[in-house]
Write a protein that binds this DNA or RNA. Structure first.
Lengths: 212, 212
DNA sequence: CAGATATACAAACGATCGGTCGTTAATATA
DNA sequence: TATATTAACGACCGATCGTTTGTATATCTG
């Protein structure tokens, strides 16, 4: 199959639509997002969507896929440039904070909005979003395990336990910074994980100082 | 003003409607909740709502108020029976976990759903919900301060910092237990706070063992 | 009892929802 | 060049959204 002009054009607009959908969904969720408003935001027509997706749910599923790719490129990939172990773990946390504070998405975090929206709503979107969370936590857990094996974290550490803590302390920054604390939420979210890791790390000099 | 039959009847149905509204909103949010479905769930008519509230937003604001009262009675009040200090602090955390695991609300937590929904949606509901979060964090912070003054927490503790951690680690249980972990989320959320408090507490015997 | 007031409703409003249909213009294949 | 195929559209569908209107009924006041 050659990349002919038709399909290329379709692909471009498809991607532009998904980009907008992820952006809008970070604010109002994937259900709160209506096809009418998405059409307005992308400068296209509602009915045009059905040339690309069978129904709204298929568009939602593709939007999740797009958000996963975006998250992988903007958060996971940069963290992988840090040396494995506790430094990579904290780099992952800081990459997440940067993603939030840079305002990549107007709503802060696509997954926070969508997971809160779908955690009680059975269906394909919930399953896909659940898998995304599963994969994300699995990734953190593997970094923890690797750090333990490298002797950079105490052997008593339970990887699933620490993964939960790191994710929870990072995720709630979105809510607190927007609804309560403003910038202070970033300080709290960063320090919480930093303190926790330093306390578990035999060589804390691998990590930044607690109050730089 | 005597409690005449009219107002009493009105009050009863008003409360029944709010109870249902909070329950439904814990699942689908305060916007996701439609007046039509709320009418069906309460066995009343849509138009009857406008005898009690001017518009949907007023109903939403009252629902937040109702949820605050429910939270205060079910979580805050029981914790206040524990002796002040670190024990009360952990009792507060455990009361919250019980609120979630008992399934008081079908969606787990009204505030989690609604705050995630409104953190990017300016308006009266957002402001009210923001104040609720503010009050809640202020309450936790005061318990931390009190524990420090009682010598039950290290003097180096930053109350706002620790309040953020306790709230974040407790709140995300809702999402993780429903979308990922199931019961394990409760274990992680409980242990995270317990370990943190024990590490900061000069007399850890005030708190439960880490692995009971 | 008469009159005012409050609860609750059915019916209907315009707007918007997700989705269908039929068409047009452009591109690819033969 | 003739024929499919595709992206994209305007018009429209039934359903549902929040809300208004008018009304019937029950309760309190005078």
């Amino acid at each position: 199959m050659t990349t002919d002009g038709r399909r290329l054009r379709g692909l471009r607009s498809r991607e532009a639509i998904l980009e907008q959908a992820v952006s809008l969904a970070s604010v109002e969720g994937l259900n709160g997002l209506s096809l009418g408003r998405l059409a307005t935001a992308t400068g296209t027509s509602k009915s045009g969507f059905f040339s690309h997706w069978q129904d709204k749910e298929e568009l939602q599923l593709d939007a999740v896929e797009w958000a996963v790719r975006q998250w992988t490129e903007a958060v996971v990939a940069p963290a992988l440039e840090a040396p494995a172990g506790v430094r990579r773990l904290f780099a992952l946390h800081e990459a997440r904070l940067r993603f939030y504070s840079d305002g990549v998405l107007p709503g802060g975090c696509f997954f926070f909005s969508v997971q809160a929206e779908f955690d009680d709503r059975p269906g394909a979107v919930r399953d896909r979003v659940s898998r995304a969370l599963h994969d994300w936590l699995g990734f953190i857990r593997r970094q923890v395990t690797e750090a333990v094996e490298l002797g950079e974290l105490a052997g008593s550490v339970d990887p699933a336990q620490l993964a939960y803590e790191i994710d929870a302390l990072g995720e709630m920054i979105v809510l607190h910074s927007r609804l309560h604390d403003g910038p202070a939420a970033f300080v709290h979210g960063r320090r919480a994980v930093l303190q926790r890791l330093r306390a578990l790390c035999p060589d804390p000099s691998l990590l930044p100082e607690d109050r730089p």
